[in-house]
Design a protein around this nucleic acid. Structure first.
Lengths: 248, 248
DNA sequence: CGCGCGTTTGACATGACTCAAATGCTGTGG
DNA sequence: CCACAGCATTTGAGTCATGTCAAACGCGCG
């Protein structure tokens, strides 16, 4: 088995299959920065990457308003980013799965804009930004790849904004589930059966809904045979119908 | 006078003051790509920029799902981007003011993710992306600047997501008004008195509210002496109180 | 086994949407 | 210059979805 945990962590498998010490044999290769880089350039990139140890649940990776030094790429597990308003109310601005970048929005301001926390046991790669920029001056393709990642996150965020401006809870949840589905599929996992690594409370917060509404939605969607949920595992039964729910 | 229009267009002034034909003497210089570039590099950048003619109200700049070729920078006026779901319902994903980039989210997908439309009479600079990339290979600082712009928009979008997940209309409008205020101030305009170039309907749509709710909010905010509105012009009277409204 | 937290379910209040209509503004043509 | 058409904005009344409060339930962890 790929893991010795009692419960198979959805995203541990690919990272551990090869136990990557280099980008070269990382299963996330094609989702990440190495894309299109020569072997020589890849070796240079490899040398500046710090492969951090394991994060347990709810450990803080960095805090909002601290100096930006490092970009992170999730290798396994899940992270979330949160901002806290002056009332102390927390708002989750994003979940991050393997191959996704954390901290891109801090490049401009040179300080992290949100607090990043692990949602479950997770690992990641750390890319010191100054060294990455030095490298980028010699490897234009690397700069392009970083920009492309940033563009991709922009594109995601726009979709999320559309999701959030829907004034209909059904549409919000349906859209969110399909977005998860697409991201999992992109990573070689099932598009219809996956594990919700984050608690209901976090999904609700992220979607701007009350936990109770979330829970009721899960129940109703199940009654309507759109999904089946059992604790953290979920199966999407009727993708087309979920799709139509998205459009109000 | 800087303009011969009957009504002074808020953002016409700076663009017309110097009537820029080159980045060098453009008043948006410091907000835009030229930042930190040598004169030599700037000349090269200048040469690939196409300074488009004037757009009238409600003209389409590009449509969603068409091939991405060009980044745009607003020189004067306002643009908006919209996505349309399969029900034909439009959602405004962003407004763009002078010095802001349109199309950054299309770099990854290589097709525009939204339709861009002028909100009022506007002008812009067009940057062919392939030529920009060629130039970037020789000018690392240019690549960095583009990435920084992209990062800045990410940062903006995250804020907007926080705004949209608020389930309280007062907070949404207050946050939005303060965000406009900050952007105007950044461009050297008053932080408390400005013109809403977009119709109420568009603001409502952008914030995920009904037009009627928007209108009622404006009325109530006025009654509570937080703002004064007269048609398209608005004055923020009580920034601190607006600020507290943002936090639910 | 029992505690605590995450989740579910119920009852109720309320804020925002919908529908409807009045009013105001803008641009156009006579 | 005025009249009018069309659209944007405002205001009102009523409904409904979602939030809030409260309590029960169940699962995981110590």
């Amino acid at each position: 088995m790929a893991t010795n945990h009692k419960v198979v962590q959805l995203f541990d498998a690919p990272a551990q299959r090869h136990d990557p010490v280099a980008c070269d044999n990382c299963s996330l290769h094609s989702l990440c920065l190495p894309l299109g880089l020569s072997n020589h350039d890849l070796t240079q990139l490899d040398q500046i990457i710090d492969r951090k140890e394991r994060y347990q649940r709810n450990e803080v990776l960095f805090r909002a308003n601290t100096p930006f030094t490092t970009l992170f790429v999730v290798r396994s597990g899940t992270f979330k980013t949160t901002v806290t308003d002056s009332n102390g109310h927390e708002q989750i601005t994003g979940f991050y799965f393997p191959g996704e970048f954390i901290g891109l929005d801090a490049i401009y301001t040179e300080s992290y804009q949100a607090t990043a926390t692990s949602v479950e046991t997770s690992t990641l790669c750390a890319l010191p930004f100054d060294r990455l920029q030095n490298l980028g001056a010699d490897i234009p393709q690397l700069q392009v790849n970083i920009l492309r990642r940033s563009s991709k996150e922009l594109s995601n965020d726009k979709s999320l904004m559309v999701l959030l401006s829907k004034n209909n809870a059904d549409a919000k949840l349906a859209t969110y589930l399909l977005s998860l589905s697409a991201r999992f599929q992109e990573r070689g996992f099932s598009a219809t059966k996956f594990r919700l690594s984050m608690p209901r409370k976090d999904i609700a917060n992220h979607l701007g809904l009350a936990v109770e509404t979330m829970s009721r939605l899960f129940s109703r969607f199940q009654k309507e045979k759109l999904i089946t949920v059992a604790g953290k595992s979920i199966t999407l039964l009727d993708l087309p119908k979920l799709q139509t729910l998205c459009d109000h």
